[in-house]
Design a binder for these strands. Sequence first.
DNA 1: GCATTACGCTACGACCCGTAGCGAAAGCAC
DNA 2: GTGCTTTCGCTACGGGTCGTAGCGTAATGC
Lengths: 206, 206
Amino acid sequence: MQSRTPAGRTGRPRNAAADAAILAATRAALVELGWSKLTLGDVALRAGVAKTTLYRRWAGKNELVVDAVAELFDELTLPDRGSLAADIEGVVLQFATILTRPEARNGLMAVVAEAARDDALRERIRASIVDRQKRLVLAGRARAQARGELPPAPDTGEAARTVDLIFDMVAGAVVHRTLVSAEPADEEWVHGFTRVLLSGLAAAGP
Amino acid sequence: MQSRTPAGRTGRPRNAAADAAILAATRAALVELGWSKLTLGDVALRAGVAKTTLYRRWAGKNELVVDAVAELFDELTLPDRGSLAADIEGVVLQFATILTRPEARNGLMAVVAEAARDDALRERIRASIVDRQKRLVLAGRARAQARGELPPAPDTGEAARTVDLIFDMVAGAVVHRTLVSAEPADEEWVHGFTRVLLSGLAAAGP
DNA sequence: GCATTACGCTACGACCCGTAGCGAAAGCAC
DNA sequence: GTGCTTTCGCTACGGGTCGTAGCGTAATGC
């Protein structure tokens, strides 16, 4: 987040509610205007704050939209559907559902594109979106191990690489399906995709 | 392309060389400035044409960059490495190599992001980049069938869906690995990825 | 009360956009 | 050659956004 007023600090404290209002206004502007036509002046107007206030909290459009979009993915949870395959399918479907929302479609790829030339921004995306959601993979694996579907303690280095691969495949495929192919990542598609993914992981593991 | 001067047409013909110069200048500007700081005035200056000429041929930044980036992917070829798996691995590696180039990284995701709110642009991307490269999948399958690695004539509807799925998985995973995770999609990674993909397709097929 | 910080507001130069208007150039038909 | 048509380069323009500076005011802690 952006506005943590340092603790032992004098002076007027920041209006915490303004942060939420600004991020909500950013998402609303993303829906109505998309990335390229979104202006900070308009966001400030929607949020009911002065443009200068917005600039005091965020460095620019990129950072603002990253924070606004990151909140969307906090809705993700790991459903308990009884098996590893079904759990994963559930998460992928949730992810696909979030990507149907215009504020996610319009914002996510744009900041990723900007991050191609901005290391700090890419790190911000990784920290507040990607790595933040890797908890799902870890939780899923832990639950599967408890169920006995996976061996308890695989090689840590190999395991980390596998987590990264899974993430790239899941997020990449869903995003490409949704935003480039522009076809719905519906239940049927998600089912076929996770079947290929899990079969491949199982077969290629040993 | 943009500048096909209609055949039975009178008047001064368009300078065909200008198209190539403009697209090359666009790629150069993408490398140096990235998407957001790229301006059409600057591209025109680099290409040695007037800004008005550029606007007569392309509707705007989005369309221009799509065409400039699309040319990059025409370099893709289907190598003959002896087996379906090796061929696919070769193509994926070529794709990953193209994505290491800054003009591709900076341009591709940006236009995809813009396409989220622009149906015509998305269609242009599909036609001039995605569908245009599906030739590789078709050629690979044909060659594999000739080798006897695949049955000669699968169900057409199911086959088309599988091609789409392969495309979403390959392009999505490589792009996510390269641009979001910001890790190199090198030979080792590509090898592991294609192994999972092909194992999954083989196991989930029947 | 006093220092300090946040806030809203206004104004500003800088930049880019996309278009209009013009004269000149380069083809084709005759 | 003479026209006709279309492209090209150039200049200029209004409109919009950017990011910042400056100022007076509001809200805290000491």
